[in-house]
Design a protein around this nucleic acid. Structure first.
Lengths: 216, 216
DNA sequence: GCAATAATAAAACGAACGTTCAATTAATTC
DNA sequence: GAATTAATTGAACGTTCGTTTTATTATTGC
């Protein structure tokens, strides 16, 4: 046997990516074998090497595209106004929505960093740092403007990101809480954490609107 | 060759545990080979099987003892008073101190759960749930007493735990911040997040003391 | 000092791993 | 419809894996 009827390179490659994200998220990168992945796609292991030269190339591709997607999503969601509270709210909303939507690839990008070569790890971490820098800038602007009370911008940014990303550990779609309920609760926790509640700026109304929306 | 001069079972077993925590934290459970571990200990791979019947037994032992240590530490640190703010402060302090102190085994216990068999995974998760239940109880008591403003006890508990545990991702001893500085900052973030700052109970003074301590 | 036991080494086992290669068939191009 | 290219198979390669077995030496108890 050889080429199968109806086979299509683009479709196979997409199927490989999809199955790889799901398998690596479930089993871990090291625990997933190329034969297992191939079986999930419905193909022989050798066929995978037409699309990804090595197993690590496959992992790196998934991670790079995850980070690119996250940065693109933020670029699209980034508000034009300068108000720190509005920008922070947008950052939280985008972060949680993206990570819930892409739970599996988030898992892969967070858990399998140590399986990358040094150079590729650096590339992924560079993208991650660039994304986190946006949050630090928002916190700094808010602190300088006096609308946030943040003691340590860097530490607060890390705490917030870990708190928000952690949502993928326990959140399961279709259970007790909806995505918008979760987002609203995290938003109000964030605003309290950075001390924005005392600021009572114009955008504080927007936060309250989220809190109301949650109770519906 | 066979038994080496000065060999001692207890010492070897302790050395195996120590090396295993460090290696698994660095490389991951699947990526660490038994030969690698043996070499780190200065022994042949076969010798490991005198102490742990399988690789997974070794992993499970490390995880179970980590969780037991965490619960014991909390039992020792648990305050006798009923005041929710004091109890929450103690929980945060204990959690962060323990996780910074045992960074490597925390990493193992958080990242390698999927390598456990179903039964053992259940055992570890049961211990984890018991520990987290303590935090939920504190939050519930505080919310009922009106000293915390928490919308969703379970969600807030998860958010706090993820935020606090996340400290091991970026914290490196001897860098910019000391352990007590980090703890103090996390404590004030926690108190703001649960809305305790408005309560201004007697223990609020203790929180302020922590905040002052940080700026020294 | 001799028997019993504890601790290890050395070698081997079969299975699984990532990857490569040659052959083969389907689709496309002219 | 022949030639070319794209997609895949099936088999194999060498390596490494967790683990077992057997032999050997150090220590301990009497």
């Amino acid at each position: 046997m050889a080429r199968t009827t109806g086979s299509d390179g683009e479709k196979t490659e997409a199927a490989v990516r999809e199955a790889a994200v799901s398998l690596i998220a479930r089993l871990g990168y090291e625990a997933m074998s190329m034969r297992q992945l191939a079986a999930e796609v419905g193909v022989q292991a050798a066929a995978l090497y037409r699309y990804f030269p090595t197993k690590e190339d496959l992992l790196f591709t998934l991670m790079r595209e995850h980070m690119e997607g996250l940065i693109e999503a933020w670029d699209a969601a980034r508000p034009t106004v300068a108000d720190p509270a509005t920008r922070l709210a947008a950052y939280v909303e985008n972060h949680i929505a993206f990570h819930i939507e892409r739970r599996h690839s988030t898992h892969v990008s967070n858990m399998e960093l140590r399986s990358l070569s040094h150079d590729r790890l650096t590339q992924v971490l560079r993208m991650r740092t660039a994304y986190e820098k946006e949050l630090r800038a928002i916190l700094r602007d808010g602190a300088e403007a006096g609308v946030f009370s943040v003691e340590d911008t860097g530490l607060t940014a890390m705490a917030l990101i870990q708190m928000m990303t952690g949502v993928i550990v326990w959140f399961r779609p279709g259970e007790r809480l909806s995505i918008s309920e979760v987002t609203a609760t995290y938003l109000s926790m964030t605003m309290r954490l950075v001390g924005a509640a005392h600021g009572a700026t114009t955008t504080y109304g927007a936060v309250r609107a989220f809190e109301r929306a949650r109770t519906l």
